[in-house]
Design a protein around this nucleic acid. Structure first.
Length: 218
DNA sequence: AAGTCAGACAACCGCGGTAGG
DNA sequence: TCCTACCGCGGTTGTCTGACT
């Protein structure tokens, strides 16, 4: 069954080489994925089964989508994280082609960092973020009136993201989405005092506090 | 041009769950 | 029921690369 068992017990670590990638790809093409410990031996790789599995799932697998996360994906991650917490594999199930590792990295390097920098600039007490309270200049009309338009904004999002259940979260008070009135941004507010701006121009997701610090949001 | 730093992401480690003997 | 091997997940660390001085 396995004609390529290496006697050498030395285990390689660190970055994968193109030769190793080729060996792994070739073996999986012919025998399929799974049985990783056996696979590692039979493919002639001086790697652990775990390492092979990780390399396949996170990098070599042709279904893995690479490159920047889209605005829709970023929003979806936000929503799913509020629902599942750090259950990265669970979150990844809803983002075809994205791996749990990639989502985790995205969250830790982008989202969490922004949240931290924003919270450090203020006291840590729970509060309604300033950005959801409309000032007369930036949010004409009453606070209530602003939220009347939320459903329209959600519908806009739903056109792009039929899988989102933002409607439900807004109803139960854990999530809010409202338009800024400028046509290119949409605001999402979590129930934990966290506020996000989706900028369709830059295809990015901004945390209110971070934006305020940058002077772009008053 | 060289050195330093920070961000992004790939890879490893440890733990818990599960299936099979 | 216990033991062992294996798998998958989440947290953490390591490495690379580009920006900045």
């Amino acid at each position: 069954m396995c004609s390529h068992v290496e006697e050498d017990s030395e285990v390689r670590r660190g970055p994968w080489t193109t030769e190793e990638d080729a060996l792994l790809t070739h073996y999986i093409d012919h025998h399929g994925a799974g049985r990783w410990i056996m696979l590692a031996k039979c493919a002639g790789l001086k790697r652990t089964g775990k390492s092979c599995r990780l390399r396949w799932l996170n990098y070599i697998n042709p279904h893995v989508k690479r490159g920047d996360l889209t605005l829709e994906e970023q929003l979806l991650i936000l929503e799913l994280h509020s629902q599942w917490g750090n259950r990265w594999s669970k979150i990844a199930e809803h983002l075809p082609g994205r791996t749990d590792n990639a989502i985790k990295n995205y969250w830790l390097t982008r989202v969490q960092k922004q949240t931290c920098s924003a919270s450090h600039s203020r006291d840590m007490s729970p509060r309604i973020p300033e950005c959801v309270v409309p000032s007369s200049s930036t949010f004409p009309g009453s606070f209530a009136a602003e939220f009347v338009n939320i459903s329209e904004e959600i519908d806009r999002f739903s056109q792009h993201q039929s899988s989102l259940n933002v409607h439900d979260q807004v109803r139960n008070g854990s999530y809010g989405v409202g338009g800024s009135g400028h046509g290119t941004e949409t605001m999402a507010v979590s129930g934990e005092g966290c506020c996000w701006i989706c900028d369709e121009m830059t295809d990015g997701l901004w945390q209110c506090g971070a934006l305020e610090e940058m002077g772009n949001f008053v």
